Amino acid sequence: MIQEVRKGEEINSESLKKFLFESGLLSNHYNKLKILQFNNGFSNLTYLIKFENKELVLRMPPKGARFGHDMEREFRVLSSLRNSSLKIPKVYFFSKDISILGAPFYLMENINGIILTKNNPISKNLTAQQYQFISKMWIENIVQIHEINFNKMGLDKIGKPIGYVERQIKNWSTQYIKSETENIDESRKIIGWLDRNKPKKYDHCLIHNDYKYDNIVFDKSLNSVNAILDWEMCTIGDPLMDFGTSLAYWTIESDHKNIKGILDYPTVNAGNPTRMELVSMYESRRKIKIKDLIFYYVYGLFKLSVIVQQIFYRYKKGHTKDEKFKDLNLMTRLLFKLGWQAIQKNKIEHYY
């Protein structure tokens, strides 16, 4: 999870040291910094900065990023939520001065605990009973996000709820076309289907937009949540689009081996609910009934396919040399096939 900084993704330690000193976080400019890099995740560059018995996390957009990755937005959201009931990291400083590190960045506290990823041995050794408890916590926290009073938190201006669903379909479609590297028949079919089948009425609230196991830090006992991470896409919008994105990541044991091959998450382990069980848990907790479930699930798969394709586009253009990105085009193809099969079978499970 923590490694030496990848080649081509180094940051200027002297410039950072100067910023830390001038910000009051570093007491002596001559003290050394130790810079490491988090290797999980496919999006922003995230570094662990060690100095003077302190540990901070620095986040900045990847080189060559064409869309999203708004560090100022994420910093503003986390700052606004600091007095809420949500478990979030404390943030310190944001800078949009690209002369320092070459891109905008912000600094936050390092949260210790357990992140459930496919490569974390703990994920494979948990009992079914533990996963049952963890998944209930997972549901409880996404519901808390959706029920928070965002006006009271001063976040009413971070999104435009009117027309949100329509804009998401249009914007993600545009982003896919701009980062397209090959023709995938299902891509245009899904874009058209989503546009024709979008719900006419929907709710709005604070949404995370990337809520999944590996964006949650659990405490070491796995009995509580220490922090929810990665708020860069947070906005005011349809909560079911948020939940649909989470469903797209929620691989289950009965999924085809090809699905588990590309979305290899601990959600496949015994004790985790199926996607339909997860839907029932969410509906029960929020006292609602999801009417357009296929739309929201396919939207989640579509959004994920666009994100993956954008990363592959950066790799193909040479903006990143990380070899873990070299076959992401295969993942994009399969995600589109999954979305189209889910539409054809009208199911979110047992459709491929």
Results as ranks from 00 to 15, higher is better:
Glu4Ala: 12
Lys18Pro: 03
Phe19Trp: 11
Leu20Trp: 05
Leu26Gln: 01
Ser27Trp: 00
Asn28Leu: 00
His29Lys: 15
Gln37Tyr: 06
Asn40Thr: 13
Gly41Arg: 07
Phe42Pro: 02
Asn44Gln: 04
Tyr47Gly: 03
Tyr47Ala: 06
Lys50Pro: 02
Glu52Phe: 05
Glu55Cys: 04
Glu55Phe: 03
Leu56Ile: 10
Val57Ile: 15
Lys63Glu: 12
Lys63Trp: 03
Phe67Lys: 10
His69Thr: 09
Asp70Lys: 15
Glu72His: 11
Arg73Ile: 02
Glu74Arg: 05
Arg76Asp: 12
Val77Tyr: 00
Val77His: 01
Val77Met: 07
Arg82Asn: 15
Asn83Gly: 09
Leu86His: 12
Leu86Lys: 13
Pro89Leu: 06
Pro89Cys: 08
Lys90Ser: 11
Ser99Ile: 02
Ile100Tyr: 05
Gly102Arg: 15
Glu109His: 05
Asn110Arg: 15
Lys118Ile: 09
Pro121Asp: 13
Thr127Pro: 06
Ala128Val: 08
Ala128Leu: 10
Gln129Arg: 14
Gln129Phe: 13
Gln130Leu: 11
Gln130Ile: 10
Lys136Phe: 01
Glu140Ser: 14
Asn141Cys: 06
Val143Ala: 12
Ile145Phe: 14
Asn149Ser: 13
Asn151Ala: 09
Met153Ile: 01
Gly154His: 10
Gly159Tyr: 14
Gly159Pro: 12
Lys160Phe: 12
Gly163Glu: 11
Ile177Asp: 14
Glu180Arg: 15
Thr181Asp: 05
Asn183Phe: 12
Asp185Thr: 13
Trp193Cys: 00
Leu194Gly: 03
Asp195Leu: 11
Ile207Gly: 00
His208Cys: 08
Phe218Gly: 09
Lys220Arg: 14
Asp230Cys: 09
Glu232His: 10
Pro239Met: 13
Thr245His: 11
Leu247Asp: 03
Ile252Lys: 02
Asp255Arg: 03
Gly261Trp: 01
Gly261Tyr: 09
Ile262Trp: 12
Ala270Leu: 15
Thr274Glu: 08
Arg275His: 09
Ser280Ile: 03
Ile290Lys: 07
Asp292Cys: 11
Asp292Phe: 02
Phe295Thr: 04
Phe295Lys: 02
Tyr297Cys: 05
Gly300Val: 07
Leu301Phe: 04
Phe302Trp: 11
Ser305Gln: 07
Val306Lys: 04
Tyr315Thr: 02
His319Lys: 13
Asp322Met: 10
Ala342His: 06
Lys345Gln: 14
Tyr352Pro: 02
